[in-house]
Design a protein around this nucleic acid. Structure first.
Lengths: 109, 109
DNA sequence: CATCAATATCGATGTGCGTCGATATAACTA
DNA sequence: TAGTTATATCGACGCACATCGATATTGATG
């Protein structure tokens, strides 16, 4: 469970034409995480909340996916550094790590 | 071989929290295309050229991949609207469709 | 037309992973 | 401790796809 450290994630823009094989592998991991409709919908559902965080149980209900599948996707995004989670009682609340998304977006500029 | 029309590709930012299932599917296709180290390196190699375009044969030599594999990746990116190609004699030159990359990047802002 | 070089397609193989039901773990409550 | 709910993990299945060698196609040139 090695997280990509946020501070270290900083690759040159793709259009700069100086990507190394290692950087390409790191960036590709993140793009592949986003290359799944279910995960994009989960991110959007979290962002749609005024509190900017959502209990996992609500996410299970909103999408048409089973609880294990939602849990799996949340874990993938958490380990990719795209989500943060916090336990409060029985519930676990997820929120988006915006800086992570934004820094990935800069690769495309 | 249905290209996503460039003019129609315009999804709300992920953080706006209003993504539909259809939009999620469309965006996910593009992210998945970018979720491959070989393809990112191909894009970077093209961007690295002063002329901003590269003959496919050069790309075969630069990466450690077979000619069919490189041809496959170029086709995937072409059909995703990320690359444009032009035949000149025996050679086919590929260039990056920058607007496509940039508009995808805006989804992450 | 025949030949050569560049590119694309085909068929096969192996792997990654999305999905689920079943089950385990964790936390609260009585 | 027992019971209930929320979440995570496990094992299995099926499909998508990256990769390659072999082959077809395309265009230029004698």
């Amino acid at each position: 469970m090695t997280l990509l450290p946020l501070a270290d994630f900083c690759c040159p823009p793709l259009l700069a034409g100086s990507l190394t094989a290692t950087e390409a592998a790191d960036v590709a991991v993140l793009f592949r995480v986003l290359g799944e409709p279910a995960r994009l919908l989960l991110l959007s559902a979290i962002a749609a909340q005024p509190s900017q965080e959502v209990c996992a149980c609500e996410l299970v209900e909103s999408l048409g996916l089973s609880q294990p599948t939602v849990s799996h996707h949340l874990k993938v995004m958490y380990e990719a550094g795209l989500l943060a989670k916090e336990r409060r009682g029985n519930w676990i609340y997820y929120r988006i790590v915006r800086e992570r998304l934004v820094s990935l977006g800069k690769v495309l500029d």
